[in-house]
Amino acid sequence: MHHHGGGPLPPFSLSRALEWSPDWPYLLFCALALGLYLAGAVRLWRRGDKWPVGRAVAWTAGVGTVLLVTSTGLNDYGMVLFSAHMMQHMVLSMLSPILLLLGAPITLALRALRPARKGSGRGPRELLVALLHSTYVRIVSHPAFTIPLFIASLYVLYFTPLFDFLMQYRVGHLAMMLHFLAVGMLFFWPIMGVDPGPHRPGFVMRIIELFMGMPFHAFFGVAVMMASGQLVSTFSAATAPPGTNLHDDQQLAGGITWAFGEIPTAIVLIALTLQWAKSEERQARRRDRAADRDGDAELEAYNRYLASLDRGAAGRAAGQSAGQAADRAAGQAAGQAS
């Protein structure tokens, strides 16, 4: 499928976009991501620990979406059609990250990596913990950083010459794709995260954070749809598939951006609602357990109280009988004395 410099691609079609067209750096990246994750999950299962299968499925689906937009014909079309590039951008920044985060990779790494042996310095696990606690991670995962970054990634890239510059080089294109994925992961981490992180806002705050980025995203899509001139010069009539109207294609790219914002929002809201319900349920269970323990404690205290009353009564009864005996003895003695 690769037509790098081999004449223009045939007109875009879904079947052509889904054809296998491996791009080695992405392929390697995906193989590593999947291999390492599954190795970690298998290590836990072998050990007899629990690791939810759903998380492994989410991670696999996430890696699958990355493959789908980078190692298929879509990636080739993404070099010559704005709309195809935008599909890649949206999936990598808004769908793959959500699925990958639902896989809870950090939690898995923390549980699967063995602590370093005493005296052998820091192992990978210690480095990961140190990184999670570092000021750097605290800053880059803070909503005040991730939301502007998420928005700027759209505006700065397409409304300045940066996009055209990066697209000239293979490594520029690679870096751009990785950037989309990384920014998406950072943006959704505090919101979606099953994983531990420096920022764990409450559920209401998470929903607000989610909605703070979305209007900018939608507005960007509309701005692209309404732009009269070509925003970027990379996509030219010379390289486009024959019969392409570049302006229509740019409008389609804007439409894709605008519409795509709704999909992850819906997925995230559903996932958040489920997580919220689950955490409420967990808290309720915790309260029940506490109540059970307290209830037992109260019951035990009450039993002890009853026992103490019994002891008191028994003691008094013993005291009374002793007293009566003494009285009788005294009476008998008095009788004898008379």
Rank of each mutant, 00 (worst) to 15 (best):
L74M: 15
S308G: 00
A61Y: 02
F220V: 01
T70W: 00
D164H: 11
Y302V: 01
Y26L: 10
S93I: 14
G254T: 00
S236N: 04
R55N: 10
V63P: 03
K278E: 15
D294F: 13
N303G: 12
P11I: 10
A277P: 05
E209N: 13
A313L: 08
T257A: 14
A56M: 09
V171K: 06
P10H: 04
P8H: 02
G78S: 13
L132Q: 06
L14K: 07
G62E: 02
M225A: 07
A152G: 01
I106C: 02
T160N: 03
Y158H: 14
L68I: 01
T60D: 04
L110T: 02
L252G: 06
A259H: 03
M176H: 08
M90G: 00
R111N: 04
A56R: 06
M185K: 12
S141P: 02
V91I: 14
H247Y: 10
G103P: 02
E298C: 08
S321D: 11
L34W: 12
W24P: 09
P143A: 10
V69T: 08
F29Q: 11
A333G: 11
V232E: 01
V91P: 04
S96E: 04
G73N: 07
L34E: 15
P105Q: 03
G315A: 13
V91K: 13
P10T: 09
R170S: 10
